[in-house]
Each structure stands twice: as C-alpha cells, then as structure tokens.
C-alpha cells in the first residue's frame, strides 16, 4: 500500500500530507489526539452548530483524592502504608473515581508493592485479574501506563495499580514471580505497547507474528485498512473517514 498523497477525492476535502515520523508500509495518519488530522473543515471546536445540548460537556479532570477515600479504600491504604515502609515514596497519587480505587505507583516499585499487596494479611490480594496498558500520547510525558487489576478473594475487594513509563525508557519490573498469571498478559502489553518488563522469563510477542515491527496499540500506530468500493462509491478505511473531533 502506498503512502497517502495530498488527495482531494474524499468529497473534496484535502487530506494532510504524510505526517512527519510516519514510516512506510502502512497508511500514515496523525495520532487521534492531534487536532490536525481530524475534522471535516479543519474546525478546532466540536463543529457543532445544531445546538444539540449533549455535545459540549465540561471536561471532568480526574483529581487526586484526599482522605477519607470512603468504603474499604481507607483500610486498604492504611494497611499498605503500615506494611510497606516506602509507601510515601512509591505512591505517586491516589485516585478514587466511580467507586474504584487507583493507586499510581512509581514504576520501579511496582513489583515490591504487588508483593506486599499479595502477602500482607490485611491486604491479601491473591488474584491478579488483569494486566494491560494504556497509551496516553500527548497527555502524559510518561505516556505508557501499565494497569494492574488486583482482586482480594478474602475481603472481596478490588484495587487498580497504575505505573507510568515513557516510550523512550519503557522499563519496569515484571510481576510474574509474584503473580505467575501476569506472564502472558505482560507479553501482550509488550507486544501491543512495547513496555519492557524486566525479569520476565520470556518476553516475546504473543498475539502478533514474531517478526512484526512496531507496537500496534500505541496511539501513534495507524489502524491501517484499504478503501472498499460499495455501490460505486469508495469508502475509505475507518481511520481515514471524516469524523467528528
């Protein structure tokens, strides 16, 4: 597939030329968070002239929570603080949102924290439900956030740990020695986001082919796709369609 030209065949809308940093092989595209690659008429607002009330909503920013957190969250935080001497240094932020507790952990401390979370008798997070990553491109300099969902079967509690690393230095300790179930899930996060888990027994790609280049679920990785002809009209691939901001 060739790189996109300065085409005007999408209903006369000029398409930006290949953005800087885009590599060949797949259709280049600006990241979704970039305003330049989106919108029908280069409009920077919502483009909404209908007066439809639901479109413009105040953006709720997520603030760090202050005590008391409510529910069992205080007990979890207290227990962790008591069991883990480096609590103050390791915990960057505590967020309580939509009834869920998120502890933002300094990335190099994540394995230690998981160890305490699993072993301390008043925490007992025996099950690591999920490990995945989110790419906050443009919103955070340490854009790759690794997210751990821990479940305590004893106390029936759930906690989310979040550790942020940068794309240039995407290293953090693996938790496979504490939660063996993280093995494949860390491999998936490596495969899709390029996060490197130090100490993982075999950090290789798992879903993509072994010789694949790039990490597909990063936000600056294009979706790809080919235009499809339907009843005489050419339908561009999803990431090249006209869309709202």
């Amino acid at each position: 597939m060739s790189a996109p030209q300065n085409r005007t065949d999408d209903g006369g809308v000029p398409v930006p030329v290949t953005p800087a940093g885009a590599t060949g092989g797949a259709p280049a595209e600006l990241p979704p968070s970039s305003p330049a690659g989106r919108g029908m008429f280069g409009d920077q607002g919502t483009g909404d002239v209908s007066g439809y009330g639901g479109l413009v909503r105040p953006q709720r920013s997520i603030e760090a929570a202050t005590r008391p957190y409510g529910g069992y969250f205080d007990e979890v935080a207290d227990a962790l603080e008591e069991a883990y001497p480096a609590f103050g240094e390791a915990i960057e932020k505590v967020v309580v949102d939509r009834g869920e507790l998120t502890l933002h952990i300094r990335s190099e401390r994540i394995a230690e924290v998981c160890q305490v979370m699993r072993d301390d008798l008043s925490l007992r997070f025996e099950l690591c439900s999920s490990v995945s990553a989110v790419d906050y491109l443009g919103a955070d300099t340490r854009r790759l956030h690794v997210v751990y969902q821990l479940t305590s079967m004893t106390y029936r509690r759930q906690v989310r740990l979040e550790a942020a690393v940068s794309a240039e230095e995407p290293h953090l300790p693996s938790v496979t020695s504490i939660y063996p179930t993280a093995d494949w899930q860390e491999r998936e996060a490596y495969d899709m986001f390029g996060v490197i888990f130090d100490g993982h027994p075999g950090l290789t790609r798992i879903l993509m082919p072994d010789d694949w280049e790039g990490h597909p679920q990063r936000k600056d990785y294009p979706l790809g796709g080919v235009p499809v002809e339907y009843k005489g009209a050419e339908i561009p691939p999803p990431d090249r369609r006209r869309s709202y901001q």
Binding site: D48, Y52, R57, R60, E100, S129
Partner: peptide, 22 residues
C-alpha cells in the same frame, strides 16, 4: 431528525476516566 442524525453519526460523549467491570 437532527437528534437522530447526531446521535447515530457522532454518538454520545462519555466523561473521561477509567473503569474495570468483571
């Protein structure tokens, strides 16, 4: 008609944040 069009083509907005549901 406008309402239908906006909701179907654009969709509703979801306030920022993250959740986990099992």
């Amino acid at each position: 008609l406008i309402h239908h069009f906006k909701l179907v083509t654009e969709g509703f907005r979801v306030p920022p944040g993250q959740v986990y549901v099992g």
